[in-house]
Design a protein around this nucleic acid. Structure first.
Lengths: 338, 338
DNA sequence: GTGAAAGCGCTAACAG
DNA sequence: CTGTTAGCGCTTTCAC
């Protein structure tokens, strides 16, 4: 394991010179720089992050807290984070909350042990005590996705997203609109499901459209649960709505599957709109309100990095997260007479 | 930022005593242990991983290399890894290869910088040069999923898995069997797709069943591509097979969607079987050969951890990864006359 | 341009 | 049971 001192000795230099040469600092002659680099290369020198971290306090890693990696949205965000950090030679240290133990555990792990220089938190609200500890260590922290109490956040305005989706249906002429929403059990403390549901209710009310209890379906943010919810509705013999707003594309896929199986034609008999911009949406020709989780991850990573170079005082601007209605072939005007 | 020495001073002890007390080492009086713990707690003492890593050479982190987090399989494995490591107070440092740059980048990041004590590699074969570097640093490394050249591996026998699936169809009486396979563009250097396709071909040959070119479909391991493949087959006017083996459940879902949309009844007209045991399989009533990626992740993590405590010499046994045919409602005997 | 020295915070012999 | 002494490998003043 070659270290600085090995190189220094071999070249008859001092550690400091070698260190400077390797890091491209000014004030070292061209010749020595090349010599040092040469030997370092030849001997396969690899600097120790632990050692430099110990002296500089910078560990070149960012902690990423995620409710569940198995969710498309979170996986995409993490992917974006990793991509952005890789460019800056930073690593991501992952904390998956989806297993038992949850947050409690989190703080016994290295989150607070000066392993990471910053924190990105996906859709997770910490308890007050945890917040306090976090503040104490003074790590720059930012949230992505659902609102995170007490920190800046990159994420779409979920209310606006749902309003956009709902209005699209209303503008097409629908007045009998159902919701496939519910609570994401793996989403943990995220308030996104509530926000989305509430936005739907508000928008209908605003438009003077009646809300029907039997059309408020719970899909649990899962393909299978959404599918079942529709199957139950179908089996109940209740009247169908002419449009269904699904608060995630994955649920929309389940809904379409169930509808199709029952011979209900989309969009002729019922329109379906999703939210998120999942890969499936395109494959299914699903109308959706699309957001860019990967970009949000990149942006959050960029923010933390910027904060790190700017120093603790300067808070860079939090990037905004755009969304967009993408109209495809699952939404249309309601059947005549409705 | 309280450190060992602060506690030591406050209590009139030495750093070593405090260190031992905190780590519960033998040979420290009950009284001091309690005193030390008390102060540590009160002052919010947090040990520095960098410092202890520097002295012990143990960094309490495992690197995880993943082709793409956005794949259900990989995300599940990582989730399992994280869960197992969390219990041992280890962190996972993530390397997502899905973005440009790929492996090259990997080695410039901290993989080789003594940040991690071990490595778990998901379905990724490194180039020879990278292998060499890896060997050089001497990190215990294990693969999960697809075969990884030069390291032990946790993963199902993909050949056997496909044989099982194919035989299931044959035993039901099918002789006109198609494959939805193809290559996973995000799977990188993994050979799993080839192995699965080859196993299918072999098994049919063995059973003396004719292979039909027009039934060898490419689904790219994606829902959408598999769906399109079926749509094309349907549009081509070719005869349909009586059974389709899909080399992933996600593709099977796409296949079922397309079949259903065209009014082809599963399993009455055509049987569909998947592979993997994705959540969707259950929701769709899909017959599949199920494996447990999360458990595989846990097992791989356990192996690395065991290796770490056992010391470099001892190679713990590599756990085997079971799989199981789960028969649900998408497979049945072929229609009479076939 | 380059070197010497101090120190980051901890652990690990070795003494007592 | 506890203290002393060395480092681990690097960065960073401060000198020269």
């Amino acid at each position: 394991m070659t270290s600085l001192i090995d190189i220094a000795r071999e070249l008859g230099l001092s550690k400091s010179t070698v260190s400077r040469a390797l890091r491209g600092m000014p004030g070292i002659s061209r010749a020595t720089v090349e010599a040092v680099r040469g030997v370092a290369e030849r001997d396969g020198y690899i600097p120790s992050l632990a050692a430099s971290g110990l002296t500089t306090g910078r560990h070149h890693a960012i902690g990423v807290v995620v409710p569940s990696l198995r969710r498309w949205f979170y996986a995409s965000v993490v992917s974006g984070i990793d991509a952005a950090l890789a460019e800056a030679n930073y690593d991501v240290v992952l904390f998956d909350l989806s297993r038992g133990g949850g947050e409690e555990r989190l703080f016994h792990r290295s989150l607070l042990r000066r392993r990471v220089d910053g924190l990105i938190v996906l859709s997770t609200d910490f308890a007050a005590e945890e917040q306090r500890q976090l503040d104490e260590v003074g790590l720059p922290a930012i949230g992505v996705g659902g609102p995170t109490h007490g920190m800046p956040r990159v994420g779409v305005d979920d209310h606006a997203v749902v309003v956009t989706a709902t209005r699209h249906l209303i503008e097409l002429g629908h007045r009998r609109i159902g919701l496939v929403g519910g609570v994401d059990m793996e989403g943990l403390n995220s308030k996104v499901p509530e926000i989305r549901s509430a936005a739907f209710v508000d928008t209908l009310a605003e438009a003077g459209i009646e809300l029907r209890d039997e059309w408020m379906l719970s899909g649990g943010y899962r393909f299978g649960q959404a599918k079942h919810a529709i199957e139950r509705l179908l089996a109940s013999g209740e009247e169908l709505p002419t449009a269904l707003l699904c608060t995630s594309d994955e649920m929309a896929a389940g809904v379409m599957f169930a509808l199709q199986a029952a011979g209900v034609v989309v969009p002729d008999e019922v329109s379906v709109i999703g939210i998120d911009g999942h890969d499936y949406a395109e494959a299914l020709g699903l109308t959706t309100v699309q957001q860019e989780p990967e970009q949000q991850g990149r942006d959050a990573a960029g923010w933390v990095l910027a904060h790190l170079v700017a120093g603790a005082g300067d808070w860079p601007d939090v990037p905004s997260a755009p969304f967009e209605l993408v109209v495809r072939s699952t939404t249309a005007a309601p059947p005549p007479g409705d």
